[in-house]
């Protein structure tokens, strides 16, 4: 898994690539925790180059979404979700917990 962060005035765009599993999900948790630790609660996860995400990644998304949405201070949005990952999100009902955008720019503009 690799990530890069692009900081905007009122949100952060995290580009996620590679594979998120039990081995790499803790790294994603750290990155998201460091953003919320800096009071940055408006986060976009761009998944265009994401190859794989297991339930370990879903757990990270769930806890971070809770942290961001608490007190209505923000939200995690997903962008460019690959079809195969989208199907797993749908299966687990995660599609109801995250707004999904066609691309990162649309998500940035929505904040």
């Amino acid at each position: 898994m690799e990530t890069s962060i692009k900081k905007y005035k009122n949100c952060d765009l995290v580009t996620l690539s590679g594979r998120v599993d039990s081995s790499t999900a803790p790294d994603l948790t750290k990155i998201l925790d460091s953003l919320t630790g800096d009071s940055r609660y408006k986060i976009i996860l761009d998944m265009s180059d994401l190859e794989y995400m297991s339930s370990a990644g879903f757990r990270t998304l769930l806890s971070s979404q809770r942290e961001c949405k608490r007190f209505n201070r923000g939200e995690i949005l997903l962008a460019s979700v690959p079809q195969i990952v989208k199907e797993a999100l749908d299966l687990t009902g995660f599609d109801e917990l995250f707004k999904i955008f066609d691309n990162g720019a649309d998500a940035v503009n929505s904040f």
Binding site: S54, S55, R59, L62, R66, A88, L91, T92, L97
Partner: peptide, 21 residues
């Protein structure tokens, strides 16, 4: 898998996916 964000359980998703897939 239907509750709101703060009701969802963190665990059990892996086994759920195994059964579904």
């Amino acid at each position: 898998i239907k509750g709101d964000l703060f009701e969802r359980e963190i665990g059990g998703l892996g086994v759920f996916l195994m059964r579904k897939l």
